[in-house]
Design a protein around this nucleic acid. Structure first.
Length: 213
DNA sequence: CGGCGCTAATCC
DNA sequence: GGATTAGCGCCG
């Protein structure tokens, strides 16, 4: 977002860097002092003493580096050396600054990805919930339709001789026990139901169920 | 070599 | 206490 630079002087510094940075003496004075004590390993003798103050880069230096980073996150050694001399820094400092900056950029991007993923997840959970209630609703409709069918069948078979084999046709077609692969949705005899009721809404509404079976 | 991860040290 | 600067070790 912020390509940075609210101060026009910093833009000028892009074109006259050596001039500009000369006016900004390193606030701690003291030339870049590396070699810092850390846990064990390779303590090269020499002057390795104690009082290293950590010099902070000046605002101008940082904004120049930011500008440069905005153009290109990688730092080829030519650019490194040029930047270093323009800013009056050790090339190593420039390299370190870019490394740290890349690390910050990466973790920021990671965080953005995370929150984006989280939002997607949340809305997916919401959608799942919505679909589950829809399933419930449709199951209820299905149940009602089955009851209607049952009632109509009973009405049909009432006045007719009960031991005629021809009367059992639809009752058997309406097997009330769902086949195992349809179990959860109880879609037994579903074609018969649709033919019978001609309920287009239910028909369309259940189309998606086919995706699950 | 330079990059990166990890981490200490330091600044604010 | 988070941000910044830097050292160290490892990898390609």
């Amino acid at each position: 977002m912020n390509l940075g630079v609210d101060d026009p002087m910093e833009l000028i510094s892009e074109y006259y860097p050596q001039f500009y940075t000369k006016m900004v003496p390193q606030q701690g004075e003291a030339k870049p002092r590396r070699r810092r004590r850390k846990k064990s390993k390779g303590e090269d003798g020499g002057g390795g003493g104690g009082g290293f103050k950590k010099r902070k880069l000046s605002e101008q230096q940082v904004s120049m580096l930011e500008l440069s980073f905005g153009n290109e996150h990688k730092l080829e050694s030519e650019r490194k050396d040029r930047l270093a001399s323009e800013l009056g820094l050790d090339p190593r400092q420039v390299a370190v600054w870019f490394q740290n900056r890349r690390a910050r950029w990466k973790s920021k991007k990671l965080e953005e990805q995370y929150s984006k993923l989280k939002m997607e997840h949340d809305s997916t959970v919401l959608e799942k919930c919505r679909l589950e209630t829809e399933v419930l609703k449709l199951k209820e409709q299905l149940c009602d339709a089955e009851k209607d069918i049952q009632r109509l069948l009973e009405r049909c078979t009432d006045g007719v001789s009960s031991n005629s084999p021809s009367t059992s046709f639809s009752v058997e077609a309406m097997d009330p026990v769902p086949p195992p692969f349809l179990g959860e949705f109880g879609m037994d005899g579903i074609e018969n139901i649709f033919h019978f009721s001609g309920n287009n809404y239910v028909n369309q509404g259940l189309e998606w169920v086919n995706l699950y079976i």
